[in-house]
Simulated assay, not measured.
Amino acid sequence: MALLKKLCLLLLGLVAILLGIGLVLTNPDTITIDFFGRELGPLPRGLWLLAALFAGCLMGVLASLPMLLRLRRRVHVLNQQLIKLRVAPARAQNKTE
């Protein structure tokens, strides 16, 4: 099952790379981006599109990071509580014997 998952992820990665290459090759016109008065070099339009997609994905991951860290902390606290609850009945049973 793990091998199948790895193969699917590899296939998905290859498809993404091929789509990116296709995007760059079908949009070869070079453009210059003016970003707050500073010109960013002339690059193919497809490359600018990929850069914008990458920047958007990165911002999305960074925006969700605080929530993910909060949830991981909550899971850790709940696991500690669960361990305490499992140990308590065993200790009580040992005291009664």
Rank of each mutant, 00 (worst) to 15 (best):
W48V: 01
R72I: 00
L40N: 08
V77C: 02
A92N: 09
L58I: 14
L53Y: 06
L23H: 04
G56I: 03
D34V: 01
K6S: 14
R74T: 13
P66E: 09
N94Q: 15
V77S: 04
L58F: 09
M59Q: 12
M59C: 15
L71V: 12
A52T: 04
Q81C: 08
N27R: 07
L10T: 08
A88E: 13
T30P: 06
R74F: 13
W48D: 00
K84E: 08
L10K: 01
N94L: 11
N27G: 00
R38D: 04
G41M: 08
V24T: 11
L68Q: 12
L62A: 15
L23Y: 02
R38C: 02
P44D: 06
A51F: 14
K95G: 01
A52M: 11
L82K: 14
L9H: 10
R70G: 01
K95A: 15
R91C: 03
N94V: 03
L12Q: 10
R70K: 13
K5L: 15
R73Q: 15
L7H: 03
S64F: 05
Q81N: 11
M59Y: 11
Q80N: 07
L62H: 05
Q93K: 15
L85I: 08
D34M: 04
G22Q: 06
T96V: 14
A51E: 00
L11N: 12
T96M: 14
K5M: 10
G60W: 03
K95T: 04
K5E: 05
R73L: 06
T30N: 14
Q93S: 12
L69A: 11
A55V: 14
M59S: 15
A52E: 03
I33A: 06
L9C: 14
V77M: 04
L19Y: 07
D34Y: 01
L43G: 02
L68V: 12
G46W: 04
P42Y: 00
G46K: 07
L18M: 13
P66D: 10
M1F: 03
L62V: 10
A51W: 05
R73Y: 04
I31C: 06
L69Y: 06
P89D: 02
V15H: 06
L18Q: 13
P28W: 06
L68M: 13
Q80W: 10
V77K: 02
E39Q: 09
L53Q: 03
T32L: 05
L43E: 06
L47H: 02
L11C: 10
A63S: 14
P28H: 05
L50P: 01
G41C: 05
